[in-house]
Each structure stands twice: as C-alpha cells, then as structure tokens.
Design a protein around this nucleic acid. Structure first.
Lengths: 247, 247
DNA sequence: CGCATATTTGATAGATTTCAATTTATGTGG
DNA sequence: CCACATAAATTGAAATCTATCAAATATGCG
C-alpha cells in the first residue's frame, strides 16, 4: 500500500459528496475500504467482455476507456474514465461485463472488491444512493456520447469530445489549457467512430482554425469557447459543481 | 385507477426478480406503490431536458424513446423503453433531466412519485440494489447503442436495432414474428443516426434480401437469424433470462 | 543508425446526405 | 363514399462526407 486510503479515495469521496449528502459515518466507512495500488501500462485490459468481475477499479491516475468490440476486431470506445472515477462501479450489481475496460495511458488504479462495497451499500442507504447515482450519471454521459456519434459530423464530434474531457479533467470550463490526452489518433478514432485517417484530417481542420495545437501526445486548447460553439456543448450533463447545482 | 396495482407493476416486478432476489416483503412493498393510469398520445414529451422531475414513468403499454437534441432541432434517440420498463428510474437519483423522454406511439403509463420510491430504496436494500441494477443495465444498453452508431453501416445498424427491439418485446429470440414498431421512418432515422431518406433505402435493402416486410406501421421479420448475423447481434447485454443466467 | 510506430498527405471509392419531386397512405369533413 | 388535406413513403440525381488504399514523412527507442 503506497498511500493512505483516505488520500486515494479522497477525490471520489468529494465527487460523491458533490451530488449526494453523505453522513460522517458514511464517509468514514468509505474511507476504510481496503486499497492497494496497482500500476498498469497503457493498452491493457482491466476487464474483458463476458468476464465475471469481482472488484471495481478506482482510477488514481491515467485514462481508461470503455470498449465495445465487433467480431471483426472493430472497436468503439463509448466512454472514458479519468482520475477520481470509480470506473466500473456498475459491476457491483452486474458482475458479468458487457463492455471491456482498457487503459489508454499508463494508469494507477485501486481494485475495490465487490464484497465490502455491497456491504456498505446494504448498511448505508446514503452510500447505496450515491453509487446508484454514479451509474445514472454514467448513463447520462453514454446517452450524450451516442447522440454525438449519431448526429454530429467529424469536426463537431471531435470538438465535443475535447470539451467533455477538458471539463472532466479540470472540473470547470477552461479558457486555454493543456489536455494530457496521451491517446493515439487511432484511439481517438475509436472514441469518435472515425478512422485514424480521418481523425488526422479533422485535427488538421481544428488546427488550421487555430482552435488547438497537438504536440507530442499533448493537446493544447487555444479557443475553448469556439470549440463549445462548434460542438454545441452543454456541460450540465456532467453534473460538475462548477456549472450548476444539482439536486 | 383502472386496474389493481399488482397487475400493473407485475411485469416490472418479474423483470426485477429476474436479476435480483427480492424478499416477499420487498415485493409486497413494491406492489403497494400508488398507481394511476394515464393514456398519452403519440409524440408527446413525458420529460423535457432540464426539467426537474418528480416521478418516474412506468410503461404499461406503448413505446417511449430517450431523446437528445441539438440546438438546430436535430434529434437523436439513444434508447427505447417498452411495456414493463420503468423508463426514467434514473430520475430518482438525478431529478434534473439531461435527456428528454417522449412517446413514439400512443402509450399507457403510470407515474410513480419519487418520494415513495426513495423510501423503499432506503428501507429495503434489495430494492435499492434492484433499482441501481436497472440503471446499470440502462448504461449497458446505451453503450451498445453508441457502438452501433459509431462502428456499423446503415444496414447492420438497422438490423441491430430490430434485433434488440425484438428480443426486448418478446423476451426471447424469435424466428419469424411481427414487431409492433409503429414508429415512422423519421423516428427510425433518429434512432439510427440516419436521415429518414436513407432509412427508407436501407429498409429496401432488407426487404429485397427477404429479411423483413414493412406494412402499415408494422414490421414482420422473416429471417431473424440472418438479421442477427448482419448485425453481429449478441443479446447477452440485454440480460434477458431466456438467453443466459445472470448473477 | 535501424527499426517500429505514429502522423501526415494524396487519390479514389463508397456511403450518406441533401435537395427535389412523385407517389402512396391516412385522416377528416361533407 | 368521395374529395380534400396532410403526412409518410418512395425514388432520383447531385453534392458532401468519410473510408479505404497507398505512400511518405516524422518520431521515439534500443
């Protein structure tokens, strides 16, 4: 165990508390969960489709994607998890995985066994509700992600992805900033439902319009507001405190 | 009140019991929820984006869609709810709606106020877990829906939609059957991320291949297995008992 | 340096949208 | 039952977007 549990789970606790009111006892109970850090390289499966999962992955650092795959080997990323997310909390109530979970970058995680999570949810209604709410937010993000794939062209779709990621990384709408998006353009294609080839062209368009630059595997956003406009991005579905209060 | 509550909620109870074990007391408590039937015409909003919702909609009969919409008036349907679904159970923990909910056909619903649902979830851990699980299944369907939009062409996408709907209507994989899909091709376009124009052409392809017929607003599937093959459809994510057991 | 991987670019084919028009259903009032 | 109005389905042609194939250029790494 490298850090104290409290420090690890802290960001997630803050996130939960943001939407749900947790009593001191509930917060303490969450903080006492067993936690052992694991360092995982990029491009590794945390969960495979069909696997019977026995723990949920808390992301300490890094970027993790939710993958669907066709038999042809085609992949579609349907959601992302950043530091502070409890990536597959769903698995507590659905142990059989219907999507895969893979690291996009080198990632530090903590595996939280289902058993104590179930006990917590059973003993503390506030925790049960907070967990359920996380799944509901997951669904809200997935729904928006689907709308993106269905009804926006490559440029707007890409802009929307960048906006979502920026807000979730920073917790607030930024102006100009660096996004540690160390994913390849292939990965971006899997997120956007585009070929890596077309991702490249699309980024070129955004670069030419002076909306962003792309150096190394880091993205610098130059004009967030214009990206928001192109993407028709409305951050309220992310339920981040910086944007609006949420009951 | 037109029917007894038990009869109304019955299908949903059976669905819940399919995944989660509920005690007799829990089932009884659910059965005692207040229930008043409402008949709603096609093409009406049950929930608008941004609205602060105070009850969840149980679908007794009909077809309801989850809508995302762009400012340009473009719409994308990201999921469907059929008879027996508790459509926006999510709203119990996320009262502010991030997606709209609209009827696609004439629909009979029961509005279940949040307050008693919250009490039930607080008093009975089994119910809390069952509700959470419904949200998790919602997320699983949304993820697959997104993958569909991102990585399949019009024909495969359409085939997949039909397969999902068929399985959810019938609860089991059918051979040849009628699908009461009384949605216009425009609505289908909103589901599939296609123009109504291209939906029409796509159905023509499926018809020409003798996979289905389309008369009135009813769909007859002629070759379910071939549709499954085209769609690369794997029903396990629907967690219907007829396909596989689910922990 | 040499290799592997990722990015960039070009040319072409294919899929889908858009615009436009026609035909076919569906409903409504007389 | 008919005439009419309206909405939906069907079809066509052109424009646009994206994928596919192929190659060239960077970039990182041992």
């Amino acid at each position: 165990m490298e850090y104290s549990d409290q420090i690890l789970i802290g960001p997630f606790l803050r996130r939960l508390a943001l939407h749900s009111k947790l009593t001191d006892a509930e917060q303490r109970a969450l903080g006492e969960l067993p936690a052992e850090v694991e360092h995982i390289p990029a491009r590794r499966d945390l969960v495979r489709i069909g696997q019977h999962v026995a723990d949920a992955c808390f992301i300490v650092e890094g970027l993790v994607g939710r993958f669907e795959q066709t038999s042809q080997g085609q992949r579609q990323i349907t959601g992302l998890h950043v530091a502070g997310d409890l990536a597959d909390l769903n698995s507590v109530v659905l142990p059989q995985a219907y999507s895969a979970l893979s690291t996009l970058t080198a990632t530090t995680i903590v595996r939280l066994p289902h058993a104590p999570l179930r006990l917590l949810a059973g003993d503390y209604p506030g925790i049960a509700r907070a967990f359920w709410q996380e799944s509901a937010l997951d669904a809200a993000r997935l729904s928006r992600w689907a709308a993106n794939l269905g009804r926006k062209d490559a440029v707007a779709r890409t802009a929307h992805l960048i906006c979502e990621l920026a807000c979730r990384y920073l917790g607030s709408p930024p102006t100009a900033f660096d996004l540690p998006l160390s994913a390849t353009q292939s990965d971006l294609g899997d997120m956007l439902g585009l070929t890596r080839n077309h991702v490249n062209r699309t980024f070129k368009v955004l670069r030419t319009a002076d909306l962003l630059t792309w150096y190394g595997s880091k993205l610098r956003v130059l004009d967030f507001d214009k990206l928001v406009a192109i993407a028709e991005f409305d951050p309220s579905y992310l339920a981040l405190s910086s944007f609006d209060a949420n009951g």
